[in-house]
């Protein structure tokens, strides 16, 4: 049990501030991440993603609930975090030290100093030629790469990445995607990934949770979540009337000659029946697979 579930959150809440200045950041969230999975943790800005990640890393104490990594409570059994590598909310380093020295300091702090491993990580993230320059001269992308090297320095079982593609160029994003996939598929690591690049998440994650206003509003296998909701593209005339009659029942987006309707799979016939009943001419109906991005925008928009 302890090694099959990498992360377990039980009714975790976090409220910042006191009395009338209380701001709930996370509200009673529970989730489990199985070992070996690539788990996407999605949400709009301010949804509570980073607060949750910081609680997993024992940087923030939860107001209620408990967090477990490989079955051990992260607060009372802090040493379990030695199995975790994390890049939390933008890489940050000692600006006056070189990239290599920063990694040395972190490795020594974690009691796992190995000069050869540091060099390997610098090679892997493509920073070997700039490792001996001070970090204050690094670009955001370079810091992000160094952050990834720092997270993987001690060969952790669980890797937590909070917006790892921030500051990376398109080629860097592509590399990062491959890197994350390899972490799970080739190295057998568990990856907990928070990202705004939903296309990337859709491609690499087995399972996702969507958090909004501190609460998890959807959770499941990516394919199942997307299959549960169908996007119907209907070619109909007049478009205005079609939009008007469907809007009270389903989310509708009108285009020039078509309308897009988000419905549950078994509601598709009802859409057509409604249009026909209101004398809208239906020329074509086709089902399109919804992207994770569309799904995300739809569920977070609806919850808002």
């Amino acid at each position: 049990m302890s090694d099959t579930i990498a992360i377990r959150l039980e009714d975790v809440s976090k409220t910042f501030g006191r009395r009338k200045y209380r701001v709930p950041a996370v509200r009673e969230i529970s989730l489990s991440v199985a070992a070996g999975q690539v788990y996407g943790f999605l949400g709009p800005n301010g949804a509570g993603k980073t607060t949750t990640i910081r609680m997993i890393m024992d940087l923030i104490r939860p107001s209620a609930g408990a967090l477990f990594v490989y079955g051990r409570n992260v607060h009372s059994d802090h040493t379990v975090l030695q199995r975790v590598g994390a890049l939390v909310e933008g890489a940050a380093f000692y600006p006056f030290l070189t990239g290599r020295k920063n990694l040395e300091v972190l490795a020594r702090t974690g009691n796992h100093y190995d000069a050869a491993r540091i060099q390997t990580m610098l090679d892997q993230v493509g920073l070997a030629d700039r490792a001996d320059r001070q970090v204050k001269g690094y670009s955001t992308g370079m810091k992000q790469r160094l952050g990834l090297a720092a997270a993987l320095l001690h060969d952790p079982d669980l890797v937590i990445l909070d917006e790892p593609t921030n500051g990376l160029d398109p080629a860097g994003i592509q590399e990062m995607r491959t890197f994350i996939r390899d972490l799970a598929q080739k190295q057998g690591k568990t990856v907990f990934l928070s990202s705004h690049l939903l296309g990337e998440v859709e491609q690499v994650c087995d399972r996702v949770a969507i958090i909004n206003k501190g609460q998890i509003i959807r959770e499941g296998i990516v394919a199942d979540l997307l299959a549960a909701q169908t996007q119907l593209v209907v070619e109909a005339e007049p478009v205005d009337r079609a939009t008007a009659v469907l809007t009270p029942h389903w989310p509708v987006t009108a285009n020039e000659k078509t309308i897009t309707v988000l419905v549950a799979r078994d509601e598709a016939p009802a859409v057509v029946q409604t249009l026909v009943a209101h004398e809208v001419a239906v020329y074509q109906v086709r089902r399109e697979r919804q992207s994770l991005e569309q799904f995300f925008l739809e569920v977070t928009g609806r919850e808002s």
């Binding site: 910081r54 890393m57 024992d58 940087l59 802090h78 975090l81 030695q82 975790v84 994390a86 939390v88 909310e89 933008g90 940050a92 380093f93 000692y94 600006p95 972190l106 702090t109 974690g110 009691n111 720092a150």
Partner: peptide, 20 residues
């Protein structure tokens, strides 16, 4: 400095706070 450079988040998971 650890607050201003944002580096506590790197080292706290690696060691117990009293030792740091």
């Amino acid at each position: 400095g650890e607050y201003q450079w944002g580096t506590w988040k790197n080292i706290i998971p690696r060691h117990r706070r009293p030792a740091l």
